[in-house]
Design a protein around this nucleic acid. Structure first.
Lengths: 166, 166
DNA sequence: AGTATATTTCAGAATATTTTGAAAATTCAA
DNA sequence: TTGAATTTTCAAAATATTCTGAAATATACT
């Protein structure tokens, strides 16, 4: 397979994967492009390569920086900014997990906490309490695992894998 | 807090959480409703409770059944179908993980496999190969963990948690 | 300050997704 | 069969999201 074909297949696939995880296509594709690029790219290069507008490119580059998975490089004597993605996939996974924990798990934990003490003793209320209780237990555990994961290194993860495998 | 208020807060929160995971709001809300209901509900009851149309209710109930997280109950002498969600949160998590593995991880693994042998020895091609290689390693590992998780029981998960904690 | 270059913003346009509701299809009992 | 009850389908409408492009803003050099 030719490089160009492989590249566009990969960018395409990454975009699709992103969509099903609540990340918009352009954002995922910019990330894919930076991930496989052997050097930092400017906004203009990204625009040309992915055929998207300046506004779109800019907004999504900022979002990626917000997520902490893309950084900018400033070059002495150059006005232009260049962007690059961290090549360490583990670091990427940890960062994404950290952000999603913050953006999604935290809010639901908060809501579950607020639902703590509902009134009523009838079947509906009892069932509700039970489900909320189980969900809290579950989300608490997930939270714990993510916490652990996002603060550990690749080596740790392999160790865990080994233990699981047995 | 009154039951009704708690119920609507919960349904609302579950809907929002669903959205950020690529599950549409109505689908997530129907699931939330069934999860906390102390008895199976008919399409009509769901329509009234969530204020959605028949078509919408029907489509999303089917989708939930497709995902394997909602089931129907048929009652002797009744035409109407009643729906209920599995109350076991662990079973729910396993099922969702199984489905996402099938729907999302499998396709990306397939693409990565196809990108195996790209031609070229220049910097771009080399970088590309390297990233694809790392991604394959990573997704392979994730796949392994999910596989393990989706075939194990709650007890196993706790055992893992204990090991991780140390 | 003036100028050229680059980045950001954002209203409107384009797309994509979700929802509705009524017609068509299905099911079951009489 | 027939027909009433129920489920399913799907075109059109409503809504939500994403994208564009040009104007506004910012930056750095002379």
């Amino acid at each position: 397979m030719q490089y160009q074909e492989a590249k566009s297949k990969f960018i395409q696939a990454w975009g699709t994967l992103g969509s099903s995880w609540g990340i918009n296509r352009a954002m995922a594709q910019i990330h894919a492009l930076l991930l496989i690029s052997d050097k930092p790219l400017s906004t203009d290069e990204i625009m040309v390569d992915l055929q998207i507008s300046r506004g779109n490119a800019n907004m999504n580059i900022r979002a990626l920086i917000d997520w902490g998975i893309v950084n900018k490089e400033l070059r002495a004597g150059e006005r232009k900014e260049f962007f690059f993605a961290d090549k360490d996939i583990w670091e990427l996974a940890r960062q994404v997990s950290r952000e999603r924990q913050k953006r999604e798990l935290a809010p639901i934990l908060k809501v579950l906490g607020e639902l703590d003490s509902i009134e009523g003793e009838d079947a509906s209320a009892m069932e509700f309490k039970q489900v909320v209780k189980e969900l809290k237990k579950f989300t608490g555990n997930v939270n714990g695992v993510l916490q652990k994961f996002s603060n550990s290194d690749e080596h740790w993860f392999y160790a865990v894998l080994m233990k699981l495998a047995k």
